[in-house]
Design a protein around this nucleic acid. Structure first.
Lengths: 162, 162
DNA sequence: AGAAATCTTTTGAAAGTCAAAGAGTGGAGG
DNA sequence: CCTCCACTCTTTGACTTTCAAAAGATTTCT
């Protein structure tokens, strides 16, 4: 198998399992009633929140309509509070409740431990390479993202042709 | 920022954008009518398919019920064919149509190009190290997956406590 | 005040998912 | 040869996530 194919297979394997693992970890933890998507919303609001719906939706890359229903559920479950802004009453400000912050911190800790365990067996050169490679991948994906996301003069999706 | 936090941030960034990018790439390509999830199903069936529903569902990690509706749609769109097995008429065998295979190959090519561009700037030692590191990560994620996926004596989700 | 702009929610639709019930087929034992 | 259990798949009902577009509330501008 070619080098590229091996790398591709490994990336797919990793990608595939990570989401499932995270979902299952959440379901077994102290906050069994929130999904990965909901946790992601909590992250979008942030610990020191009081952010508006539009801002948060933009951060998360979803529409405000979608966020409204997500927040409905999170409010019902007690993770988020809604407040109308007193200066501009069109605006809705949202923030995490105590419970929401607790969940947020727990999940951060989970992530931190995952990464710690992941990098702990690596020696210094491996660490450096990992960081460099991830930085490169990140930049690369950002480019691709821009390429395929921007509207514009029907740019040629290389490798997608024929 | 600590090494771990940098790695975590990069991973999140990459993870976040990759799905969106892939979805958008698909929508701009020659097969605008299939989603990433549907492409994933096509991959699950494979080029030399003739696999049963159960097998494919297991490969994809979804229930057969879910697969049934996915296949319904893919048949309607002309990417997949259903055939009852003549030896055991309970079994349904599915395989990609010509169009399905074309879509599969195109998507593979997209992936291969992505990886090629990613690894092309790396020299030989860096390549070796990347492969090793990815292998390690893959093994690690597999362990985590097993840890949180297996049913069993309420294993402690380390770092999920308090 | 009236119109236009802005922010959020509501509504309708689709995909993706599961669990559980239902339908058809196969095989083993009486 | 029947019957019944097991197996494979589909159907059904429910829920989440998502968007686009319409509607509602409020502010700002003329």
């Amino acid at each position: 198998m070619s080098y590229e194919k091996q790398v591709n297979a490994l990336l797919l394997d990793i990608y595939d399992k990570i989401l499932v693992t995270e979902e299952k970890a959440l379901r077994k933890g102290s906050f069994k009633d929130i999904s990965v998507a909901e946790m992601h919303t909590l992250e979008g609001i942030g610990l020191y929140g009081n952010r508006t719906m539009s801002e948060t939706a933009a951060t998360l890359g979803i529409t405000t309509g979608t966020l409204t229903v997500a927040i409905d559920r999170l409010v019902r479950k007690g993770y988020v509070e809604r407040h109308r802004d007193q200066n501009d009453r069109r605006v809705v400000r949202i923030q995490l409740t105590k419970k929401g912050k607790l969940a947020y911190r727990m999940h951060s800790k989970f992530h931190r431990l995952l990464v710690e365990r992941l990098v702990s067996p690596l020696d210094e050169p491996a660490r450096r390479l990992l960081l460099e490679t991830l930085t490169e991948i990140s930049g690369f994906i950002r480019d691709q993202h821009a390429r395929y996301t921007q509207p514009g003069p029907s740019r040629q999706p290389e490798g997608a042709a024929q």
